[in-house]
Amino acid sequence: MKRIHLTINGLAVTGKAGQTILQVAQQHGIIIPTLCNFPGLAPAASCRICIVEVAGYPRPVPACATAAEQGMEICTDSERIRKARRMIVELLLAERNHTCPVCVMDGACELQTLAKLLGIDHVRYGFISPQMTLDISQARFGIDHNRCILCRRCVRVCDEVEGAHTWDVSGRGATSRIISDLAEPWGDSGTCTDCGKCVQSCPTGALFEKGPKKAGKGTPCLERIVEWRGRKNK
């Protein structure tokens, strides 16, 4: 395998030809925050959190889907990049309903962690808070579209790893929504194998396991969500 040499944040590093910028960075312990990227899945390059600057390129590029090349000079943490990442996370937080204190994933959520990492203490945009639905028809799991950030990890893991392709996206733009089969209740799905990979890969509390949290902190949260949703809908 051909070795390539490049610099990341001024540090000279080596990688293998064919690796992405993200892979090279991770190998050398350089942290590039990611969200839609998931090890083992094809990169979607859709969340735009992992953008980095490459000298000579007109725009930042997503590290998860850009091949590292010989001689690249990469900057992963400039003021410009930090600002863009902060805005993107704020946009995600304002887009649907991310109310951490009543979320099953509070404390284990990647979006929340990212927001903390980027020092987001307020959101400058107006909260859109659309009234999305909650589907708990499946025996073991549930999906709360209010928490979904449309990263499509569940769609990819179901298609690429499990091979079931139960999930896909319906609609487009801001009205995009994750659907199972013909936009039917998850519990009625004929293709779902009940494997739970989608739940494992979800970065937020959109896909969750029913019942009490097995490990760590937290309380039975499903009841709390349903109760909270019921109150809100009144």
């Binding site: 979607a44 390059a45 859709s46 969340c47 735009r48 993107i88 946009l91 995600l92 304002a94 887009e95 950030i149 449309l150 996206v169 609609g171 487009r172 733009g173 801001a174 009205t175 995009s176």
Partner: peptide
């Protein structure tokens, strides 16, 4: 007309 894939365009 946004396809809804990437965050900057969709949101």
């Amino acid at each position: 007309e946004s396809c809804g894939k990437c965050t900057p365009c969709r949101a």
